[in-house]
Design a protein around this nucleic acid. Structure first.
Length: 578
RNA sequence: GGACCGUUAGCUCAGCUGGAUAGAGCGCUGCCCUCCGAAGGCAGAGGCCAGAGGUUCGAAUCCUCUACGGUCCGCCA
């Protein structure tokens, strides 16, 4: 149930009626007619722009349309009044019974807020996809949290979502990993080793070296790469992926599919994808122009196999083979996306870090070409996370190994705080993460503020039960006993939930959920605080069970919405604060 | 040289895809504690939405240019 959709349907019905009655010309499109909450609540409960949108195509004055529409809207039982305002806005006030039905719905219908927007379409969300060369760090964490919340949001909005992780286990970086683990393996055998440039010096590989020793003993000692490289590579990537899975699990991320890049090699799948493009006339041998501006010192023109991505909006064509004939990283990426397309997904989403911004156009070009423009690909970039401690920037150095890992975040502030905070910013804006502020228990901290709202409701429920109040049938409460404007304002904010889900899902913007929850929590706290001054607004009315039930039904419904929202974000709805 | 992202209150940021007088928190100013929790509450001040053009009934939102900041730019993934 989406109240805004219901009222919009009413508006459309009235407009259709007006057309039949000859008040509007035939053939008008009502697509742009919107029903929204007014910017200023004083204007009413709902507003429609119908008159203004239709004025031009109908060649009529907005006010004339608005007046005729207003009287028809007001005839509906749900609409108490409809007034024309400003340039032609139509403001409606809704009957208290409408809000009561929203509350009732939230309490009885477990799917309140869920949407059929997605219509069961199959959506693939690829996120994290960090190289299997070490544990996840802060940047990955943001991508993981964002992708996961987006996937949950889309599922809530009616899509059939697959969460997917692409393991980059086919490139040179896993050779580097293997050599680094080999060094740790030698170390485990008591040898002195040095980590040159081009190896990974991180401590996290020590255990992998020891485990390798436990597995193969001294079999690889004093042997050349040709003996051990392939097996160590396999061993090491497995170890890293196990670590990464644990990292992901610690912030509640669980993938449906782990897709191996390596599985594309030697199976003809890359070749098949390239052939598909070739058949479309998009592959050719050629030489790229040198990049403008500062030239790399060793730049020289070379003939390569190129993908004509400029046909699909890219700036230059992209190489898919190196000059020695080996595939570039782009080739398996094409094959991977070809695979996604051929798995019959209706739409794809990739979540990348900001440093991959340069690959957006070519990836979109590839998918457009491979799918014949039938499968949309949206690429969401997550910007950098800036860490602070005590208000001071937290310096990270890759060389010194002082990288902040996902595990550090979870150990320090917990999964809930990490997740919520990372979703309080748009994905494409940089994010500040202050270790001290995010754990602060005050209203300045949105994480706490929202959880506190949920906990407060449960605190009331506990108190009411302790007082011997019967709460077994809140859905049956007489909500006409809770119609103070402050109570209706809370119900109205809650009624926005289903609409917000659709807006957020359409835009692939889970942060909207976080901001909405903050607003909703804010309304709840405001109502609570008014109870301090106005005893009649307190939720528990000692001498009036029916009124108490109505008020508690209202806030219980709010807590249900909060818990739905939090679960989309992957945050636990706390029932009490410590 | 180019691509992408950003620029909104002193600070940190929202702004529902083109709608009404641009919002929230912090900070600032002034009031308010014998309270279902003051780990606060209420109110107020504070804006040329980076700048300039354009599109139209109407622009923070769309287009063009400029400025500043970030990310990136063949044979690394």
């Amino acid at each position: 149930m989406n109240l805004f959709a219901d009222i919009r349907a009413l508006v459309i019905d009235c407009l259709t009626e007006m057309t039949t009655d000859g008040l509007l010309p035939d053939g008008l499109s009502f697509d742009n007619v919107a029903v929204e909450p007014p910017r200023d609540a004083a204007h009413g409960d709902m507003a429609t722009n119908a008159a203004m949108v239709l004025a031009k195509p109908a060649k009529m004055k907005p006010r004339d349309i608005a007046d005729a529409l207003a009287s028809r809207l007001a005839a509906d039982a749900r609409v108490n009044s409809a007034d024309v305002a400003g340039p032609g806005f139509l403001n409606m006030r809704l009957d208290a019974g409408v809000w009561a039905s929203v509350v009732h719905n939230a309490l009885t219908n477990a799917d309140f807020g869920k949407s059929d927007l997605g219509q069961g379409k199959r959506m693939n969300v690829e996120y994290v996809s960090a190289n299997p060369t070490g544990p996840l760090h802060v940047g990955h964490t943001r991508g993981a949290v964002f992708g996961d919340a987006l996937a949950s949001l889309l599922a809530y909005a009616g899509y059939d979502v697959t969460r997917e992780y692409y393991i980059n286990d086919g490139g040179a970086q896993v050779d580097v990993l293997a050599r680094s683990v080999y060094l740790r393996y030698l170390e485990a055998h008591g040898q002195e080793v040095t980590f040159e440039d081009g190896t990974y010096p991180g401590d996290y590989l020590i255990k992998a070296g020891e485990d390798l020793k436990a597995k193969v003993g001294d079999a690889y000692l004093d042997k050349g790469e040709e003996v051990w490289l392939e097996e160590v590579r396999e061993f090491a990537t497995d170890a890293m992926m196990t670590m990464i899975r644990e990292d992901l699990a610690s912030i509640g991320v669980k993938m449906d599919v782990f897709y191996s890049e390596k599985s594309l090699y030697g199976t003809g799948r890359i070749e098949a994808a390239i052939k598909d493009l070739d058949d479309k006339g998009l592959i050719y041998r050629g030489t790229l122009e040198p990049p403008k501006g500062k030239l790399p010192e060793d730049w020289e023109a070379r003939e390569q196999t190129l993908f004509k991505s400029t046909d699909y909006g890219d700036d230059v064509d992209r190489p898919i083979q190196k000059s020695d004939g080996a595939w570039t990283y782009f080739a398996p990426d094409i094959a991977y996306h070809f695979d996604k397309v051929s798995r019959d997904f209706d739409a794809l989403i990739d979540v990348f870090g900001a440093d991959h911004g340069g690959y957006v156009k070519r990836m979109k070009a590839a998918v457009a070409a491979l799918s014949g423009d039938s499968v949309p690909l949206d690429i969401k970039l997550t910007q950098l996370v800036k860490l602070y401690k005590n208000g001071e920037p937290f310096k990270m150095s890759k060389r010194a190994g002082t990288f902040i890992m996902l595990r550090d975040l979870v150990d320090e502030v917990g999964s809930d705080v990490t997740r919520f905070h990372m979703l309080t910013r748009k994905n494409d804006a940089p994010l500040d993460f202050d270790f001290d502020k995010v754990t602060e228990q005050s209203k300045d901290n949105p994480v706490f503020y929202v959880q506190y709202a949920h906990a407060r409701v449960h605190s009331v429920l506990r108190k009411a039960s302790e007082a011997g109040m019967d709460l077994s049938d809140l859905a049956g409460a007489d909500l006409s006993l809770a119609t103070h404007e402050a109570e209706l304002a809370l119900a109205a904010k809650m009624a926005e939930w289903p609409r917000l889900v659709e807006i957020a899902a359409k835009g692939h913007e889970p942060h909207r959920v976080a901001f909405y929850l903050y607003d909703l929590a804010s309304e709840l706290h405001a109502l609570w605080n008014r109870g301090n001054d106005d005893v009649s607004l307190r939720f528990i009315q000692e001498d009036n069970v029916a009124a108490s039930q109505a008020k508690i039904a209202l806030i219980k419904a709010v807590s249900v919405v909060i818990s739905h929202g939090l679960s989309i974000l992957g945050v636990t709805p706390a029932e009490e604060m410590r």
